[in-house]
Amino acid sequence: MAIQPEGMATFQESRRQYSEWRRIAQVYLRRKVSVLGLVIIVGLIVTAIFAPLLAPYDPTVTDVVNKLQQPSSAHWFGTDQVGRDVLSRVIYGARTSLLIALGAMGLAAVIGQTLGLIAGYFGGWRFHIIMRIMDALMAIPRIVLAIMVSAVLGGGVRNLILALGIAMVAGQARMMCGQVLTVKQNDYILAGRTIGVNHLRMMLRHIYPNAFQPLLVMVTVGLGMTIMSEAALSFLGLGISAQTAAWGSMISDGQNYLFSNPVLSIAPGVAIGLVVFGFNMAGDGLRDALDPRLRGVV
């Protein structure tokens, strides 16, 4: 063991190129449908960022004279009941959806994962108090909980983020807690304790990086689900004000003209479907790529 061939160092050198993230990327990119999912997500992000450049019209300007027009070269998806350009509203809707999805999921991830980490790491009364509260939250269906919260807080983007975020805290906390309980069993955690690592360092440096992979998948799929929930809330009129372009409320507005102007509802509907599909496929791909049983396989 002490004696190793001279060539060892150069062999090490060449092997350094290989990294875990590169392998994950390779496995991920092998699945075509996951790549499609990634393309859709990137498309969504680009659309959201460059909405003012991409949209042919201002999505909020009404033009009552040209209301409820059929699709044409001037208005690709037609205009709605107050004459706003539907294509522009779909493009700006991407902004709303992404903002709410990232906000709500981020909120849920930060709160939920922190709680789960604390509950799983310390165990005992902290575990029981936190996880029983999470169980209670989980007993209420997500969308009902979100409706409840937004009914109390009122509409608007910020409150919608809060409502959807709170509804997803429990899932994150539970997953994290379970992961931490598994990771905690490992000898390197005990080894860390034997060298006197304190709790905070132990949680952040030793446990979290070993526990977060499944949560990454959950967050990805969760982003899609949040967009769905946001659309549902907007559809029910509990979401965003009519002025802001949001896919859910567009479908809701369009339902009165479903037979005369179906594009009004179909366009945002397809957008929602596409984006949710994208997040789900990306999540599936990530799950496969992060599967520890595939470690070492290229």
Binding site: D187, I195, P209
Partner: peptide
């Protein structure tokens, strides 16, 4: 711990953080 009394464990495969 670590500074005055240190420990080495049985399983070298799992004693290091991956």
């Amino acid at each position: 711990r670590g500074a005055k009394i240190a420990m080495v464990f049985q399983e070298p495969m799992t004693s290091l953080n991956p």
